[in-house]
Design a protein around this nucleic acid. Structure first.
Lengths: 241, 241
DNA sequence: GGAATAGTGTCTTTCAGACACTATCTG
DNA sequence: CAGATAGTGTCTGAAAGACACTATTCC
């Protein structure tokens, strides 16, 4: 019928997916650091985030998985789901064609990125790249949006709404309160009070037990710390609805 | 060159914009009510949100404005900006063609909708339509996402982050604390304590003065209330950065 | 013992929640 | 006057911020 053919005659934008892969490296170290994965590319030449066009009758989610597989070289199964940041739709943002980008962000553990292509570049908690020239297209903006959304999850939602000790799961269990705090500090970019931080976190964690005694970490210096994991209890003290 | 032509040979999705226009009707009344604008359409037949395909080299924002002008029949100039909710991209969501929808939401005052086409249908604070059959496509889900984002702005961001008495500006100035509270109640769907509500709001408002005396509302019953407007002061007691 | 880190106790301030009361209008 | 709504005062409990202190490890 005429409507259906009408719909197909209009020019359509290329819909792409660009992905800011965030991670915190050195979580067992003294000063973990927030980083983003960038790829070198030739056409146009420079550094950019991994991305790709959506294929026929694909969903956005599957396209993102495809980018992780083909461009980054890791298996998206069992990884956290990427989520949409916003659309980048300046008609001139890509010289080659009319392309609209659905910018996504995903937070992975350093271990999940073993064997991945690309470079992990340090990012400030304000979302600016620590070193090197700007990224291609509007990808610097995408990094900024990704980090800003990340910070919000850690400093705001964490404190008031959906209280979770490590919303994006940068840490592998088990971990010490010290490690957890250092991850938060890497994300929010400010020192946090040790005792207040621990007091808020403790109710959300449970100590790892062996023979009824808490398992301790092997520290380089100082008193060993208790190892924790997320609470398994179903008791949800603050429900939203 | 070959890359550029490659890009254009792949099939592309039709990118549409669908818009949930939210409003609170009866703000000077005793029980204001949250509503969403729906249009009747013929092809396919039923009720749906206003929407439309993005035209060549257009931005998403301009397309949304276009939808407001052409489908709803109002002038988007000087209105609040719509914002993206998320993408709806089920390949089968539209029988006619492969279409991906960028679902948007905008909050308007009842007065801004004077002369608009369509019907304002009541919505529960959980985002379900008060009456009538389901909307076409996945538009019921879009309404749900719009209302859930709206509630978040009023009950969460309002309380902790970006403290603003009326984030979406449903009320026209000046207004009484009673009116403001009733708008919040219409959005969050629960009664709020009068005194606590007023105590939190007062610092964000300033009374309307005439000859140094506060201007009072003409109530139907009871003691007249002070009329307020948003504070003009630049003093931002809680800054984010 | 000394340095370093883990963990506890407690005081103060802030603020939400709840309740009781007073004030001012209309009919 | 009664009814209705506006507005104030105050108590309580929860939790954040800040500080001081004790505990346990390695060297």
């Amino acid at each position: 019928m005429s409507i259906s053919s009408d719909l197909d005659t209009y020019p359509r934008p290329g819909l792409t997916v660009d992905l800011a892969v965030l991670t915190v490296v050195g979580t067992s170290d003294t000063t973990p650091e927030l980083r983003v994965l960038v790829l070198d590319r030739a056409q146009p030449a420079g550094r950019a985030l991994p991305g790709g066009f959506i294929r026929e009758r694909q969903t956005v989610a599957r396209t993102v998985d495809d980018v992780l597989r083909r461009k980054v070289g890791i298996d998206p199964a069992d990884l956290p789901r990427p989520h949409l940041l916003r659309l980048f739709d300046d008609p001139q943002r890509d010289d080659r064609t009319w392309a609209i980008s659905a910018a996504h962000s995903v937070s992975l553990r350093e271990a999940d990125l073993a064997g991945a292509r690309g470079t992990l570049v340090p990012v400030t908690p304000h979302g600016r790249l620590g070193d090197g020239p700007p990224l291609l297209f509007d990808h610097d903006e995408i990094v900024e949006a990704a980090v800003s959304a990340l910070r919000e999850r850690y400093e705001i939602r964490f404190r008031y709404v959906d209280v979770h000790p490590d919303p994006d799961g940068f840490l592998s269990e088990p971990f010490t309160l010290h490690q957890l705090r250092k991850v938060h500090e890497a994300v929010v970019g400010a020192p946090l009070h040790k005792d207040n931080f621990n007091r808020r976190m403790k109710p959300l964690l449970e100590p790892l037990l062996r023979d009824g005694r808490p398992v301790l970490s092997a520290n380089l210096r100082g008193r060993p710390a208790t190892l924790y994991r997320h609470r398994r209890d179903a008791d949800d003290s603050r429900t939203t609805d």
